[in-house]
Design a protein around this nucleic acid. Sequence first.
DNA 1: CGAACATTCAAGAGAGTTCTTGAATGTTCG
DNA 2: CGAACATTCAAGAACTCTCTTGAATGTTCG
Lengths: 230, 230
Amino acid sequence: MFVKAEWSCNLSAKLDLLAAFAEIARGLGNAHRLDLLEHLAQGEKGVETLAAKSGLTVANASQHLQALRRVGLVVGERRGKQVVYRLSGDDVLDLVAALRTVGERHADSVKAVVRDYFNERDALDAVAFQVLEQRLRDGLVTLLDVRPPDEFADGHVPGALNIPLADLKARLAEIPSGAEVVAYCRGPWCVLAFEAVALLRQTGRDAKRLDGGLPEWRRAGRQVAGPPAI
Amino acid sequence: MFVKAEWSCNLSAKLDLLAAFAEIARGLGNAHRLDLLEHLAQGEKGVETLAAKSGLTVANASQHLQALRRVGLVVGERRGKQVVYRLSGDDVLDLVAALRTVGERHADSVKAVVRDYFNERDALDAVAFQVLEQRLRDGLVTLLDVRPPDEFADGHVPGALNIPLADLKARLAEIPSGAEVVAYCRGPWCVLAFEAVALLRQTGRDAKRLDGGLPEWRRAGRQVAGPPAI
DNA sequence: CGAACATTCAAGAGAGTTCTTGAATGTTCG
DNA sequence: CGAACATTCAAGAACTCTCTTGAATGTTCG
């Protein structure tokens, strides 16, 4: 079969444009950078904080942040001695969410990781925002924020109880017994909530993950308690 | 400032998961692959067709398609002698759309390309689907599909007139005079419609781009004429 | 000003990506 | 079966990405 070439027209304009979009995609094309974006989705942060939270050296985190800034996914602002980074807009959250949707639906590698590391039932058995709100109103549920206290302080779902995952074992007594527990953390794939649910179930509690973390809650236009608004 | 490391928990699970998503992002991270996705958004196609349409060698196109298939963005199916590829789902269109949104809003490089190659006014001055539908009903507008005939045959907006960009100069007489002309092609950034509008304006017509191509029209749940539905 | 601090720059080793070329595989048709 | 066809594989050159290390830059505070 012979097919005539059809790219007679302004090919370089098109390729330049697509190359610009491709550059943005490559900005997302690294696990550490996706991790940094998840942390930045909780709120703006300095380089050293981000490096510590994502387990990178400061120099390396700085380079990744500059890569993200170069393609416009984050913006950095000098504030005194520090440079504070934040997401450049809500559309970045939408982009990462779209990436996750495709990944969940299609990529075998994602399915394999979920199967290997998480209980597959836990992954599917997440509570939607609307359901949570209904049960919170009815007092049927304890909402647990398992992120570190600094992120909790920067903003959290109203009514949530903050017990970081690291302390959860020691502070089980603080969780009212009887009611169902719903845990959330940084996002739909943040491991903190997965592990919290696993631990709570081991101790005989009725625990579920919230389907989405604080950034998704905020993005859905819900009220956020605690911080000065962005 | 000293920040305690916080990644005590199941770090590798998280990084594996993020790496899987990053791999998908890298799948989008190449201009030729984005081009291939745009062509596939028009409808399923064989390797040789795609290679011709995007100006790649067959071997190279095959490799890019396999890269896309590896990360689950497209699926390929052997059909007799040919292997026919198609997008793996509508969420892929949503992902590319999200990428475009971020690019348009944030990336300087995108703005630079638009400024250099296109008339900035043309880029902004696009007609929304709803506006088009209203004017089509009122008979105030001629809708022009400037894609090659094979893609038109695979599906087009009902009522559109097909004049490929390459033939447009020679076939100007076929376009009813008086009415405004709205041109569309493969997507919001497909150059065909940009160039058609530029050409039509040079000849004194009142021409505008449609804000989105056939894939976006289809994705918005509108009726598509011509083909067997996907 | 000089010390302390937060971040960035620069260079280099190692790994991954992309394109080209030519050969190999799998499918159909005479 | 063998020829023709469509696609994929394999290998290599050029290029880009990532992480590490140590030095350089810019900012504040005493």
